[in-house]
Design a protein around this nucleic acid. Structure first.
Length: 581
DNA sequence: GCCGTTTTCGGCCCGACTGTTTTCAGTCG
């Protein structure tokens, strides 16, 4: 995908410039451009062709020219030139914790080390070679060696379910400490990004308890390494895998610290720039007058709300804090009224023992009732999903009869008889229209041929969207987080087709999927498409179950979704009407 | 390299922790 390739190129140029110790503001500009390019669902090639690249924030004349060159020639001359100026192995060295551009440059220029492999060998076999380098003592070398080993074992980012479990355990440990008041998760986990790199925990406590709380934290069960343990901050590795940072802050700064450590970094920078323009200074202790002396009383800091208010902004929900336009919206009082878990009235994608689920139709009905749902749809797999025990026409007929019979027993929940029908690679479906039209709810999903190209994949999904008997497209890209990227789709075209045909696009809530993803959701809404948030549950409770809904809701919030955008917030009557559309 | 209802030039966010510094640089978030 061009967006990601371009983002990678600008990020790499920033890295190289940093190693070469060039203008740090230019480095910052390249990094911002990289982030904006990675975030946007706009068709960059089209913008380039129309000369409209500069409407993207952070893209100016020079960057626009580079992007245009990329589409014209397939490369960026400045990028190629920069790559010739350093050994490319340095870029890999830069990814190691504790090693930044200055250290990489020193190792390269003073010791001739140009790759991670080489560095590891030198530290192991001949560390005296590095002694002459200023700033690299034995402790630093040990730390670097450990970081290299750690990087080999651990793959970058963690899914929300993995990180959430670790965070909950450690929050309990911190909460149990003497003097600990509020304990909150911050960072990308609070923003509910689809993956998180590390976990940030914040604890409200007075200064006299801080040291002991940090100590208890660094000695918690599961901690396999202590990276730092200061007076207000502790940092550990849990289970040899994931880094967890704890900050202990006093009550009067708790809101400021929560805001600060929730990020994102880009959001915070934008916020602090607003503060500066107002003659103020924002840090993790509060909002101050620009020239306030140390120890001055903050203008705001106890809660996040008062900080945003003092900056002239609506409070911004964490899921929106990505510097994707939320600050301008908050300044105008135009933030969306985001969907909440309580808005969800039913689940419209789930499986039973009829295909590959663990529970019967009636068990799923009881589980949905227990969650307070007013309606539900049972959507087992279609016949080509042989490995998932997909239903053929005859078994489907029996299954539907069973659902309708069970539904009659439960008057207080509307039970829809549905199917998750496979979308083949050409966009045709696993059942004929004659079969589909007899069903109450049809989710059409791609399960195979997930590596086809963008144009083909887009055409495929649009064909399914245009089928009059299809109500929703299930996990539209088929991606599995940290496992497979799924299909590259033209979300604008797909959303336009979905809006025109009144077909909903699924936000699959399973933390392994989260598909559609946040930026797709936002684009889909802007194009007028409706969403349906579902769990794709394969059991009633305990595992891949109906309670995963909150992940989908939070992902939808990250896509700026309101309840009105999501069909399973409708009342039963409104939903019934929508189904007959 | 970007950006502008104080600027088209001259700014560009802020602090903790570590290691090796005898007063601070580098890294991180």
């Amino acid at each position: 995908m061009a967006n990601e390739e371009l983002a990678a190129i600008f990020a790499e140029m920033a890295d190289i410039l940093e190693i070469l110790d060039q203008d740090r503001f230019r480095v910052g500009s390249y990094r911002r451009a990289a982030r904006v390019l990675a975030d946007t669902t706009e068709d960059i090639a089209a913008l380039a062709a129309e000369g409209k690249l500069q409407k993207l924030p952070g893209i100016g004349k020079s960057t626009a020219e580079k992007i245009e060159e990329y589409f014209r020639t397939g490369k960026i001359t400045r990028h190629e030139e920069l790559r010739k100026q350093i050994p490319l192995g340095l870029l890999e060295m830069l990814t190691i914790q504790g090693m930044g551009p200055k250290t990489v440059a020193k190792l390269w220029k003073q010791a001739g080390i140009t790759s991670l492999d080489q560095l590891r060998k030198v530290i192991e076999e001949n560390p005296s070679k590095l002694e002459k380098i200023e700033g690299l003592g034995s402790k630093k070398l040990t730390q670097l060696a450990e970081s290299i080993t750690f990087a080999e074992k651990v793959s970058g980012r963690f899914r929300l379910d993995e990180a959430g479990a670790v965070a909950n355990n450690l929050c309990q440990v911190v909460k149990s400490c003497k003097g600990a008041k509020r304990v909150e998760v911050a960072g990308s986990l609070r923003r509910q990004r689809e993956t998180v790199g590390d976990i940030d925990i914040l604890c409200e406590a007075s200064e006299k308890y801080a040291q002991q709380i940090i100590k208890t934290f660094t000695e918690a069960r599961g901690v396999t390494k202590v990276l730092a343990a200061g007076g207000t901050k502790g940092s550990v590795i849990v289970n040899h895998r994931i880094q967890v940072d704890l900050r202990v802050v006093p009550s009067e700064s708790f809101g400021a610290a929560l805001q600060y450590f929730t990020g994102s970094k880009a959001h915070n920078i934008a916020l602090r720039e607003i503060a500066v323009k107002k003659g103020l200074k924002l840090n993790e202790y509060g909002l101050f007058k620009h020239d306030a002396p140390d120890g001055a009383k903050p203008l705001a800091g106890r809660t996040e709300e008062e900080i945003y208010a003092a900056l002239g902004l609506q409070w911004i929900p964490p899921e929106l804090r990505e510097d994707r336009g939320e600050i301008a919206a908050a300044a105008e009082g135009k933030l969306p009224d985001l969907i909440r878990l309580e808005d969800i009235q039913g689940d419209l994608h789930m499986h039973t023992t009829a295909s590959d689920g663990a529970n019967t139709v009636e068990e799923m009905i009881l589980a949905c009732k227990k969650l307070g749902y007013k309606y539900m749809a049972i959507t087992d797999h279609s016949k080509s999903q042989i490995q998932a025990n997909g239903l053929d026409e005859q078994r489907l007929a029996d299954h539907v009869a069973e659902i309708r019979s069970a539904a009659k027993k439960y008057k207080d929940i509307l039970v829809l008889a549905g199917i998750e029908v496979d979308i083949f690679k050409d966009g045709s479906l696993d059942f004929s229209d004659d079969i589909l039209k007899e069903l109450d709810f049809v989710v059409a999903s791609p399960h195979t041929a997930l590596t086809q190209g963008r144009a083909e994949a887009t055409k495929r999904l649009i064909k399914a969207i245009e089928n009059p008997y299809v109500h929703a497209i299930g996990h539209p890209t088929g991606r599995m987080i940290n496992q497979r990227t799924g299909m590259d789709i033209d979300i604008v075209k797909i959303a336009q087709a979905a809006a025109a045909n009144n077909t909903a696009l699924e936000v699959n809530a399973h933390p392994w999927r989260l598909d559609l993803r946040d930026v797709h959701i936002r684009t889909a809404i802007e194009a007028g498409a409706k969403l349906v948030i579902t769990t794709d549950a394969h059991s009633a409770f305990g595992g891949s179950d109906l309670t995963l809904m909150h992940y989908g809701v939070k992902t939808a919030r990250r896509g700026w979704a309101t309840a009105e955008d999501v069909i399973n917030t409708y009342s039963p009557a409104k939903l019934k009407k929508w189904l007959k559309r």
